[in-house]
């Protein structure tokens, strides 16, 4: 448990979360969300919860990113009536 690593991981995590909310391009938002999940996995591993971090890294950073991109491709680029 090294508090500097915890602190900076948490800072970058919050920045990534805010960025995912603020960014306008949805594809970029999905990429930032995947980065957020991976940072959360690193934070869980640093806190000693290896099992939770494993699930977060595989599901959050891996599968959910792919599923979000697929759902995005089902939509149109611009709003049409």
């Amino acid at each position: 448990m090294i508090w500097q690593i915890d602190f900076w991981l948490l800072v970058v995590l919050i920045i990534a979360a805010l960025l995912a909310l603020e960014v306008r391009d949805l594809l970029a938002a999905v990429a930032v969300l995947s980065a957020y999940s991976f940072l959360a996995a690193l934070l869980f591993a640093q806190l000693g919860a290896i099992d939770v971090s494993f699930v977060e890294a595989t599901l959050g950073a891996g599968v959910s990113g792919v599923l979000f991109v697929l759902a995005l491709f089902c939509t149109r680029r611009r709003y049409e009536k």
């Binding site: 099992d51 699930v55 891996g62």
Partner: peptide, 9 residues
């Protein structure tokens, strides 16, 4: 750490 869920994913 690991198990059925993570391996399946």
């Amino acid at each position: 750490p690991g198990g059925g869920f993570q391996g399946g994913v």
